[in-house]
Design a binder for these strands. Structure first.
Length: 315
DNA sequence: TTCCGAATAT
DNA sequence: TATATTCGGA
């Protein structure tokens, strides 16, 4: 697979399995690369709809995440993107292998906030402090590949409502205290905040600007995952990195931040991450690479595909 | 111009 | 419902 896309395309055609063949779990049958490129789906058989969630059972045992790492960026991500379930429908495929850019107007599939992902979110917010926790910053701290600011903003909006609710309830309940461990707060609608309940809410959240103090400075210690030991392979939303070779072209790396003696919170980390998704206009080939996640959904009727992030259950 | 956040849409 | 998108304002 090198860079020859022209080849990949041909190859793709040649190797197209019959519908029956790829029926079973898409993930197992579809090679990562193919998956990476686009969702393989049959014209008539859209049955192979990959289900958004839970795809446990990866053929391979999952490596356990390394020791402690506050924000294990890729820790939970197995070598193989088991989560490769996004689907990309290349609408324009028809054209000869000419290979022009896939429309970059692709829509990303809905992000599914797995408990793991949410955990990172909470950690980031916690580390930033409510004050500084705005979408952009949170997104940067999380350093999850493919996560967008809007994804975070949307989730944050909901999370704030959740916190508010907790406060209103007298908070002691599930949130902080519980130590997180079991924290199932039963008080509120079960249906509503199970996800949120899955991660402990730092106490400070409930009392902004009041008492507290305790531990917890906004910065300090945020080792943020971002730097995974030498393999920075961040988790990526849905598949993407299927290829060892095709790595994401950009990594978000955070700077290294020691601990600012001063309280002022600089942004050592967010200094500059190029979020640039490669605006490559010239490089003709590389449709696949062009976009980290080129998933897409399409299909008008109910063809909803969802992008999920390493669902490896852990926690 | 970018970003945030609430409202609204899907 | 959960997440996305829109929209007014800083």
């Amino acid at each position: 697979m090198r860079e020859e896309d022209s080849n990949w395309f041909s190859r793709w055609e040649e190797e197209l399995p019959s519908p029956e063949e790829l029926m079973p779990l898409s993930q197992t049958l579809i090679t990562p690369d193919l998956a990476l490129a686009f969702d393989i789906r049959n014209p008539n058989n859209s049955n192979n709809n990959i289900s958004p969630i839970q795809q446990h059972a990866s053929p391979q045992p999952q490596p356990q995440p390394p020791p402690s790492n506050p924000l294990p960026a890729s820790a939970t991500t197995p070598p193989h993107p088991n989560s490769a379930e996004f689907a990309a429908d290349s609408a324009e495929l028809g054209s000869g292998a000419g290979g022009e850019e896939p429309a970059r107007t692709l829509k990303r599939p809905r992000l599914v906030w797995t408990p793991q992902l949410h955990k990172r979110f909470v950690d980031a917010v916690a580390h930033l402090g409510i004050k500084n926790a705005v979408p952009k910053t949170i997104m940067q701290l999380m350093s999850v590949d493919g996560l967008t600011r809007e994804n975070v903003a949307s989730h944050l909006q909901k999370y704030r409502l959740y916190l508010k609710r907790m406060q209103g309830l007298g908070g002691s309940g599930g949130a902080g205290g519980g130590g997180g461990a079991g924290g199932l707060t039963a008080s509120v609608d079960p249906a509503t905040d199970h996800l949120f309940a899955s991660s402990p809410v730092p106490p400070h959240f409930l009392h902004p600007g009041r008492s507290n103090s305790e531990h917890f400075l906004p910065f300090v210690q945020v080792p943020v995952a971002a730097m995974q030991h030498h393999h920075h392979q961040q988790q990526q939303i849905a598949a993407v990195a299927a290829h060892p070779q095709l790595q994401p072209q950009y990594h978000r790396q955070v700077g290294h931040f020691g601990s600012p003696p001063n309280g002022q919170f600089e942004h050592p980390f967010l200094s500059r991450q190029s979020q640039s998704v490669h605006r490559m206009g010239a490089p003709v080939h590389n449709p696949v690479q062009g976009y980290v996640e080129d998933l897409e959904s399409a299909n008008g009727t109910g063809g909803r595909k969802v992008l999920t992030l390493f669902p490896t259950g852990d926690d």
